[in-house]
Design a protein around this nucleic acid. Structure first.
Lengths: 233, 233, 233, 233
DNA sequence: TATGAATGAGTCTTCATTCAT
DNA sequence: GATGAATGAAGACTCATTCAT
């Protein structure tokens, strides 16, 4: 697969991993799942800073002491939530395009799935965006690295879509950013969207339409043919 | 001017006002400007929660005690920053379209200016988005109310653009949301955009192009004619 | 008049006087009356510590700055309230016995009047008792000195009552303490008295009866003759 | 036992309980005892408002953080002191009358013991009276409820004393209030009593004599026979 | 491994008092 | 004399983190 220019910049980005005092890996996994569940609940309700570690522990069904056997700091808790969301997204998107042959269908599928996942997990996405300032340097690098991979996934799908066409490279890459960013409007603007529109479903559809329209800009002659709509989500 | 449906929903929204113990109104104004300056500086560097009120006071050139003569709580400080940003935006946008006759030029002007302002104040926008969870109920109502007005400004400009045309009302209103939301990508994705592109200026231009493309969706026959580019910002 | 033993102990007690920055004595008087009025109101509602000087100033109809032209400290405010109450009590009691010839009537009159005044000013009495810990050394001496004078007033009346009788000196002096102390029950136990009895008026009458009964202990043969009840308060 | 009218009024009074974050109940008990000891010391010296929680913690031999594992607020500290005093009083009084057969001896015993306890714990009683304004609504209800029980204990003893006699119900009930209230004079007037009398012991005896005299008023014919003094406290 | 008691650094906020005008 | 803005010391309370059991 063709390397993009952007890849030249994000070398040497180490992924932060949350270390634990516990040896039993299976146990770590189980406990962390508990923790994510509890943390998402509490963070969603109160935000990162107003949530206390004790509350999170309780919501997770473990004690405070046990909590600190599986994370080193409160920030770690936020980070494993982030990793959880990242996993959901990347696996969901992979699954969405799995088996599809037509790249244009791939594109439609990934856009819709992305929007659906973000909408379904809006509370998590919300506090992850809000608390992005809480990360330390190491975590920021890791987050950024994963964000880049996520965007590049869109870039690759787009690239397959326009294979053989004469494309504007810059527009393609920017489109990848926009496609991945736009669905977040459902989260960051949810209050005003709720007030301005009858249902969020129609908003989702409308945004998908806009996104597909944008894609036309990528090919130089703007003659991108959309696939026939043959499935409803 | 024709009432939009959305207007039916946002009635009874009172604006929160930050009260002060000081009587001299001119002084309040002067001090609050100081406070916003100091707060923006500190909040940008450390975020709302990690910033201490004492730091903000010092960065504002006043003492802690004096600070609390002009705001009641730390949250109030965040709120007057929000009001400051709102003022900059609304005045900037008004100024941008002032004197323009062609509604299509109005649209181009307001889109560009919006992007420029957000980019210029990216630090402020950043922490305002991040700390939106810090507001209390009253402040949330007020913030939301101002956000709605801001979006409706775009709606009005769009409406003028397509006066007489056969438009899709839903798309027009959704476009208003998208147009106002999109520039925030410069802020929320600044780290990845910085890595993926040579300059943010080209990103800004690219996004403006995308936005104008989107607008085409509003008229039923998609025959929106863009104005000739005759000015560079 | 015969000096009591106790007088030997309370020599050298200077009365604390609240000094003011203002020269015009008439003005001082007027302002202090305002201050007492405001302070009694605020102290009654919130107690000494929870009341702020600013609140007291406002309730007094003066500004904070003006306040500090007439008192040096917050404690001073409490003290002038104390002096105000002392004045009311001593003047009320003097007036009550003024013109009476029979010492036994004097006694009855002073007991009743004392009870009436304390009951009428129960809010003031309440916070004066509660905040007695707020005084500094100097104020404590002054308060104690006035308290002694107040008790000695009762002692003198009692002494006149039993002139010529063979009395138990100790009991007479203790009676003076009890007579002056007992009415405070209306204040310090007001909540439980309110619940336990139909009206505070009957409580007042009951206590007066008890007090008169006690007085009998003073004469050695317990043959104190109460005056005929010929007046209702 | 015959229900008194007062009982009709004090229904639905819940007792406030100070909650703790600690689970080990025995530990809570031990720590709270430490806290009461430290608090009584500090409150006695400086009063509630001038005492800092840190001082109290230090005087209790625990750290500030630990303190707040056992109480929620500074007010809670005051409240557990109150409970402590209440316990001492009620247990002391019960013990005093335990095993006595003659109700008149019971009465004498309870009066003397009450006075002794209040005198012995005058510092505690002092700040409890002074800081009664510091309680919140919930605490006030609880305090009042306990105060009522305390008074009613005296009422019951009196009632046993005069069983079979023709009594004045009102006087009996008022006597209960007076008997329980009077010993507090040792605390609230301690400075002046100290100056006016040679020893507090004689004052205590004198007051007891007065109280017994008062009791005579309860029976209609005033023919209450005091028990022979056969014990010295 | 699990527990939960102990810790104390860190922060917001209040408010008595001062002083320039 | 009156005003009210400025000040900063002080204190209640929180909570992430540690560690002995």
């Amino acid at each position: 697969m063709q390397k993009t220019m952007s890849n030249l910049k994000n070398r040497h980005i180490k992924s932060k991993s949350v270390v634990s005092r516990i040896k039993n890996e299976a146990l770590i996994d189980r406990r962390r799942k508990q923790i994510v569940q509890g943390a998402v609940k509490v963070f969603s309700e109160k935000g990162f800073h107003k949530a206390t570690v004790r509350e999170i522990a309780e919501a997770s069904g473990i004690t405070l002491g046990t909590m600190y056997n599986y994370v080193r700091t409160k920030e770690d808790i936020l980070f494993i939530c982030y990793e959880y969301m990242t996993t959901i997204l990347s696996e969901g998107l992979k699954e969405a395009i799995c088996g599809l042959e037509d790249p244009r269908e791939e594109l439609r599928a990934i856009l819709r799935r992305n929007m659906d996942i973000i909408y379904a997990h809006q509370d998590v996405v919300m506090f992850l965006y809000q608390e992005s300032g809480a990360y330390d340097q190491e975590a920021i690098r890791s987050v950024l690295s994963q964000e880049m991979k996520y965007i590049e996934l869109f870039e690759e799908v787009l690239r397959r879509c326009f294979q053989g066409k004469k494309i504007n490279e810059f527009r393609l890459r920017l489109a990848a950013d926009i496609l991945s960013y736009m669905p977040v409007i459902l989260v960051l603007r949810r209050w005003s969207l709720n007030r301005r529109f009858e249902s969020m479903e129609e908003v989702k559809e409308g945004i998908l339409d806009f996104l597909e329209k944008e894609i036309e800009l990528i090919v130089e002659d703007h003659q991108y043919e959309r696939p026939v709509k043959n499935e409803e989500h």
